[in-house]
C-alpha cells in the first residue's frame, strides 16, 4: 500500500515538472467558463445555480481526460521506464492505483480551481450549496470514470495518439448510452430490461442524478464498479503485454 503513495507522489510531481499541468488547467478553466456563460446562458437563465456549469462537464471531459490518461502507460512503455518500474519490488496493482490516483487528484485540483464561479453564484443570489457540492462530487466521479477507461486504453498500446483516440471513442460510447437518441432507437424493439440496462451503463444518467443533488447509493456504486472494472482490466492488460 505504501508503494501506491510513493508512486502517486512521483507521478503528481511529474505533471508539474512539464508545461502539461499548466496548459491543461488553463484550457480546462477557460473552456469550463466559456461553456457556462456562452452556451449555458448562465446570466440569462436568471437562476442562482450551477446547472449550466456542470451540464457541459461530460463533453469537456470527453476530450480533456483522454489527453491526460493517454500518457499513463503508453509513455512508460515508449520510454522503457516501465521496465524500471516493474523490476522494483512493486506489485502491478500498486503501480496502476498510484498512477490513476495521481491523475485523478490532478483533475480534482483543476476542478477545485473553478471555485470563482461558486463564489460568483453565491454573490449573485442564494443558491442551494448542497446541490452545488453534489454537482462537484458528481463531476469528480465522472472524471474518475473517464480516467479509468483512459488508463485501460493507455495500457493497450505504446502509442499515445492511439491511446487518446481509443479513450475518446470508448468514453463517447459510455456517454451516449444514456442519450434519448440511443434510448429511443432501442425502445422501439428491444425489451425494456435491455433498454434499462443500456441506459444504466451510461455515465450521463448517473452523473445527472448526482448533480441534481440526489446522492443515491446506486449511482455511487455504479462509478465505484466502473472504475474498479477498468483498473482491473488495466492491470490484466499490463501483465499480459508489459514487455511488448
Amino acid at each position: 500500500m505504501r508503494n501506491v503513495g510513493i508512486i502517486l507522489r512521483r507521478e503528481l510531481a511529474s505533471y508539474f515538472a512539464t508545461p502539461l499541468a499548466y496548459v491543461f488547467i488553463l484550457i480546462f478553466l477557460v473552456l469550463a467558463n466559456a461553456f457556462t456563460f456562452y452556451l449555458g446562458g448562465f446570466y440569462e437563465r436568471g437562476q442562482a445555480d450551477l446547472q449550466p456549469f456542470f451540464a457541459f462537464h461530460p463533453w469537456l471531459y470527453l476530450f480533456l481526460i483522454p489527453a491526460i490518461s493517454m500518457k499513463l502507460w503508453a509513455e512508460e512503455r515508449k520510454s522503457g521506464s516501465i521496465e524500471l518500474l516493474m523490476t522494483q519490488p512493486v506489485k502491478l496493482w500498486e503501480a496502476v492505483l498510484g498512477k490513476y490516483f495521481a491523475a485523478w487528484i490532478f483533475i480534482a485540483l483543476a476542478l477545485a480551481l473553478t471555485f470563482p464561479i461558486w463564489i460568483t453564484v453565491n454573490y449573485l443570489g442564494r443558491p442551494d450549496n448542497g446541490t452545488i457540492i453534489a454537482g462537484y462530487l458528481g463531476s469528480l466521479l465522472l472524471a474518475g470514470g473517464f480516467l479509468a477507461v483512459g488508463s485501460c486504453m493507455s495500457a493497450l498500446t505504446r502509442n499515445q495518439v492511439v491511446a487518446f483516440i481509443l479513450g475518446v471513442a470508448v468514453c463517447f460510447a459510455f456517454l451516449l448510452a444514456g442519450y434519448p437518441m440511443v434510448i429511443n432507437a432501442f425502445q422501439s424493439w428491444a425489451p425494456q430490461p435491455l433498454v434499462d440496462a443500456i441506459a444504466s451503463l451510461s455515465f450521463l444518467t448517473h452523473f445527472q442524478s448526482i448533480s441534481r443533488g440526489v446522492l443515491e447509493a446506486r449511482d455511487l456504486l455504479y462509478f465505484a464498479m466502473l472504475i474498479g472494472f477498468f483498473l482491473f482490466t488495466t492491470t490484466v492488460a499490463l501483465d499480459l503485454r508489459k514487455a511488448d
Binding site: A13, G80, E83, L84, T87
Partner: peptide
Amino acid sequence: RLGYLPEGAPSYGEM
C-alpha cells in the same frame, strides 16, 4: 534481492 539495470538505462526523463 536484485539490482537491475535495464538495457539503455531507461528512467523518468523529467525528474
